[in-house]
Amino acid sequence: MASGGLLVAGASFAAFQGLHWGLQLMPTPESVRDRWMWRNIFVSLMHSLLSGTGALVGLWLFPQMVTDPIYDHPSWARVLVAVSVGYFVADGVDMLWNQTLAQAWDLLCHHLVVVSCLSTAVVSGHFVGFSMVSLLLELNSICLHLRKLLLLSHKASSLAFRVSSWATLTTLVLFRLLPLGWMSLWLFQQHYQVSLALVILCGTGLVTVGSISISLGVRILIKDVLQPRPYPFILVHKETQQTKTCEPVTRNNSTLSLKGMEVFSSVNPQGGGAGKRRW
């Protein structure tokens, strides 16, 4: 069964990598200057829609995954977790191909933690329910990615952007902070059922994602709600892989994009700097 899960993860990697390549042949909105980031965020949105809604429906239909997150799960839940493993690996490869390590190190660290945790569930067949709860965070990532696509399309002053900002903050509490809180409490109460290595791995992932999520919420609250104002420019990446440099580009009626991570996010919650920004 472990080999089957790895096979699904490999197929998912190939599918998302193919989607990355296929989008290069498709036109992007004319207002978008950073075409690679737009394509990358669009692929991330597809994954969030699949995994987030899949996790929500799955937990609703099979609540035993919450009462017994270690052993009790249907076979399709393991498949969904494996699909997410393939996505995060493909996204990491795409970032390494199009960015410098200095630009992408934080998201790569996030992806490494996520892949390590989810892969443990795929290979062992245990903690699949725990992993499904973690995929609820992707429901917040849907709003994060929509918000980012609107920013890249110069729609920061639109009603759609304001709605996406409030939706991002609302889902951040409901589908990011609450699941992280439940997972942390469960791990603390049931640590005797888990090996020390897994406690350390899961604890590291929860602390990492939780810290990023809180920072994410504060920054979006300040930028979009408390201090909404246009910024004169945004750093835009040149498409040439050999240079991988940034140049300031005039940008009217837009707010400075923040980094958004899909978490376990990020999530990454997916920072400052000139790297990939998802919020």
Results as ranks from 00 to 15, higher is better:
S3D: 14
S3M: 07
L7Q: 10
V8G: 07
V8W: 14
F13Q: 07
A15C: 06
Q17L: 07
L19E: 05
Q24M: 08
L25M: 00
L25G: 00
P29S: 04
E30D: 15
S31V: 01
S31H: 00
R35W: 00
R35N: 02
F42Q: 01
S44M: 02
S44L: 05
L45A: 04
S51N: 00
S51H: 02
T53C: 07
T53W: 11
G54N: 11
G54R: 06
L59N: 04
L59V: 03
L59A: 10
L61C: 07
F62Q: 12
F62N: 10
P63S: 12
P63V: 08
P63A: 15
Q64G: 15
V66M: 13
T67E: 10
P69K: 09
I70F: 05
D72Q: 08
D72N: 04
H73W: 04
P74F: 11
P74D: 05
S75C: 08
W76E: 14
W76Q: 04
R78D: 06
R78F: 08
L80Q: 10
L80H: 07
V83T: 12
V85K: 04
Y87D: 01
V89M: 01
A90Y: 10
D94P: 00
M95C: 14
Q99E: 13
A102K: 09
Q103A: 13
A104E: 06
H110D: 12
S116L: 08
S116V: 11
S116G: 11
S116Q: 08
C117L: 03
C117T: 01
C117I: 08
V122Q: 05
F127S: 03
G129T: 06
F130I: 04
F130Q: 04
F130L: 09
E138Q: 11
E138R: 14
L139P: 06
L139S: 09
L139N: 13
N140Y: 12
L144A: 11
H145R: 10
K148Y: 04
L149M: 13
L152R: 02
H154G: 09
K155R: 15
S165T: 15
L169F: 03
L169C: 03
T170W: 06
V173C: 11
V173P: 03
L174I: 13
R176L: 09
L177D: 05
S184R: 11
L185P: 03
L185N: 10
Q189N: 05
S195G: 15
A197E: 14
A197S: 15
A197Y: 15
L198E: 10
L198R: 09
V199S: 10
C202Y: 11
G203F: 09
L206S: 05
V207P: 05
T208Y: 15
V209P: 03
V209R: 03
G210M: 03
S213T: 09
I214V: 15
S215E: 13
S215N: 13
R219G: 09
L226W: 14
Q227V: 12
Q227L: 13
P228H: 09
Y231I: 08
F233Q: 04
I234K: 00
V236L: 10
E239K: 01
T240D: 13
T240C: 09
Q241F: 15
Q242R: 05
T243I: 08
T243Q: 13
V249Y: 03
V249T: 05
T250I: 07
R251Y: 08
S254W: 02
E262H: 12
S265N: 07
S265A: 14
N268R: 08
G272H: 01
G272L: 12
G273S: 09
R277V: 02
R277W: 01
R278F: 02
